[in-house]
């Protein structure tokens, strides 16, 4: 099954490179958002906690603008039935999740680098823990966004529904990520953050399990 998933993942990457469906708009979104924040802050200095929170706000809205494409583009192009004919639902969900994970990791690394370069107050004192938090956060966001994208792809007003449906599902994740980022900026040790990290891991596992259990019902009419 993993071979089929990676074939679907490679199809999506190849398709993205040819059509530039998401990459260009995501890159523009990241640059514009960071620029707007930079100009609106002006000469004021952001507190470390605000800088950490703002980072995840950018990540959230970037995810909202890009991750739904995995399923929405298939629905808009009429290729949903094509996928139904060539693979079982688990393969499709797995392939799309893999694609969204790579997409979100790439764009968040770019966001992180730009953000760190632009905002002096965004200093991570404990990079090891932040890397773990960043990775688990990205996985959680990719998993949740993928299943929400599958749900909304068949609805009429996809653009509005996606952030509305995502907000309550991603809120606990965002709160944990903001909190953990603050701790990483304070230089807290692993022992002091392990409970939050454990909850983050639980969120990822829970969302992934629920997604695979529910997808079959979403996917078939």
């Amino acid at each position: 099954m993993f071979k089929s998933m990676s074939a679907l993942f490679l199809k999506d990457i190849k398709s993205e490179l040819r059509t530039r469906y998401s990459i260009n708009s995501l890159a523009m979104f990241i640059i514009v958002t960071i620029s707007v924040i930079l100009f609106s802050v002006g000469n004021e200095k952001l507190t470390p906690f605000m800088a950490g929170g703002m980072f995840w706000v950018i990540v959230f809205f970037t995810a909202m603008s890009g991750l739904s494409r995995a399923f929405v583009s298939e629905e808009e192009r009429g290729t949903t039935m094509t996928l139904q004919l060539i693979a079982n639902p688990d393969t499709i969900l797995g392939g799309k999740m893999l694609y969204n994970m790579v997409l979100i990791f790439s764009m968040n690394i770019v966001t992180f680098l730009l953000y760190t370069a632009v905002f002096d107050s965004f200093i991570i004192k404990n990079p090891d823990i932040f890397f773990l938090v960043f990775s688990l956060g990205n996985i959680g966001m990719a998993v949740s966004s993928t299943i929400i994208a599958a749900i909304i792809s068949k609805a009429g007003s996809k653009g509005t529904l996606y952030p509305v449906l995502s907000f309550p599902i991603l809120l606990p994740l965002m709160l944990m990520l903001i909190d953990l980022t603050k701790l990483c900026m304070d230089g807290t040790t692993f022992a002091d953050t392990q409970i939050e990290i454990f909850f983050l891991l639980c969120y990822d596992v829970l969302m992934m399990t629920a997604s695979f259990l529910l997808f079959d019902f979403i996917w078939k009419d």
Binding site: S4, K11, G78, T82, G95
Partner: peptide, 22 residues
């Protein structure tokens, strides 16, 4: 109602489908 991936060639479409099928 079946739609191909229009950005790929006919052969690429068939190859991709077979790979996804395993």
């Amino acid at each position: 109602y079946f739609v191909f991936y229009e950005e790929f060639s006919a052969e690429e479409n068939i190859d991709i489908f077979l790979k996804i099928r395993g």
